[in-house]
Design a protein around this nucleic acid. Sequence first.
DNA 1: TTGTATGCGTTATCAG
DNA 2: CTGATAACGCATACAA
Lengths: 332, 332
Amino acid sequence: MKIKDIARLAKVSPATVSRVINNSGYVKEEKKKAVKKVIEEVNYTPNEFAKSLKTQKSNIIGVIVPKISTETVSRVVDGITMISKENNYQLLIANTNLQVEEELNYLKVFSNNLVDGIIIMATVVTDEHLRILNNLNKPVVFVGQRVEKYTSIVHDDYNAAKAMAQHLIEKGHEKIAFVGVSEKDVAVGKVRKQAYFDALTEHNITIDKNLIAIGDFSLESGYKAMGEILQKGQPSAVMAVTDQMAFGAIHCIKDNKLSVPEDISVTGIGDGKMSKYFIPALTTAKYHHKKVGKLACEHLMSLINSKGKNTSDIVVGYDVKLRSSVNSIRES
Amino acid sequence: MKIKDIARLAKVSPATVSRVINNSGYVKEEKKKAVKKVIEEVNYTPNEFAKSLKTQKSNIIGVIVPKISTETVSRVVDGITMISKENNYQLLIANTNLQVEEELNYLKVFSNNLVDGIIIMATVVTDEHLRILNNLNKPVVFVGQRVEKYTSIVHDDYNAAKAMAQHLIEKGHEKIAFVGVSEKDVAVGKVRKQAYFDALTEHNITIDKNLIAIGDFSLESGYKAMGEILQKGQPSAVMAVTDQMAFGAIHCIKDNKLSVPEDISVTGIGDGKMSKYFIPALTTAKYHHKKVGKLACEHLMSLINSKGKNTSDIVVGYDVKLRSSVNSIRES
DNA sequence: TTGTATGCGTTATCAG
DNA sequence: CTGATAACGCATACAA
């Protein structure tokens, strides 16, 4: 069923049908009624491809994510869907499973006219990314990593991490261990570690390499990292760069017959759904993922509409959540 | 940049370029090389809309989900992406936020030729769903709920729930409470409750309405439901229909100065990422969400390709995970 | 093997 | 206000 058929049935021209559908131009009320009636009767829906081919617009945005099945990512996507829906956009999701190669691949796939704009949660941004992006000629918004010349929405990783470290210091801790991830991930690996360094240094606490261990985001890796640290000595506190890794660390501590927070205090970053309900409840910095998703989509919308190249950098704040996984050190 | 331009630059006809791109028909190796070279040089990508308009195929599948930001859903989506990628399909995600209205709306949106097929995780399937689906004329696969005349991939809810109830009974429990959700949700609300009833009845345990409370999937509602139950008496065990609700119940029990599993044993269903690490580790039935997603996508692919109406019902099994949230009742 | 020409379903221009 | 008709970019039947 196409416009031509509707036109025939309603005894008007295809052009008129199109006008009725798009509410454009002038159409006598009478004919408008007739057309609408026919459309209703035959349950007609326009062919989106023909439409997009003609208008050079799809009302679809591409979203590239590292792994949809994580709380962080799925919440961001949730935020994106909310705004995209408001603007009558659909979401094309590309799941890269943390493979940079896939990321580049999808970027290329999206370079055909399928999408009107792209939101990308890249973990690492390479020169190849930039190169492809450069001759992409489509609005792009980065989430989670700041990229020059592109608008990006990021968390305040530095201050959130610093807040955690400072909180531990204020509670009297000096032997503060660090459970992190590879510095290849700028936001989580590099920035948060730097904040840890800075916080300690500013308080005249010497950095002890034996108190630092690196994992790969998983709870299990947090467990393992904590194990490595305990092998070399017992800190009074540990700051993990994600809640998941903090959970792993806590389990490891317990398996070593120590308790949290009595023997060792623990902090995370992120505040996932379970952090508040974990036992002990985790002290952490709450991130606003959904808000990030919303902002990313809002900015993409305005980029698409204004065709302007006005890039901007948005830093979304955090809330410190003080819970029971941290204890004060008693003056001895 | 379009095919015509490539043709001009490579000194061949548009048809030849098309043949090279689609690897169809015969093209002399020499010209093929030339065309490929030009395509490479100018970084040409075909216009998907024109292509789809012509071929009546988009290589896009629509996925309708109730809420992307839950572990269950995002894992299923993860599975879907894996298979869709293998088959060179893209995913158009529609997030309905649990609104049936939105579900119907998206179903309509997808009825234009945008997608080649649909996977839908419906919570409730109404007559309206069926009506729309009926004149949709596109392959559809249901996930999570069994729908007549359509292929559906479901968990073995009945047996999983029954296994939990039976496990408690075997451990000597007789005062077994039930924390469920509305029966509007067939799989989680109705089927799992029936399993609870049947298990108890088969073991000659009388159903006690005071031991039954209903929530809405959230951890908080599990807490609340447990509170209602405790108000009326103290069971020796409680079976929650989801892990999240089990967590809520456990918190409530602890807040009432009772302990798990010493005073009250608790079971969930699902086995989310945290269930194993919760304290106490939760006894539950592990669901294979990713597998469900994969199966759903595989079946959709075969429906798309074969154009056959061969519907099928797949029931995906579960694994019982015995952990520390359940105790035996001592013979007194 | 290759090229020409047509049509996929819309929108938009232009004449009426 | 309304109706022809020309693109949009591609795949393909048909001719060569």
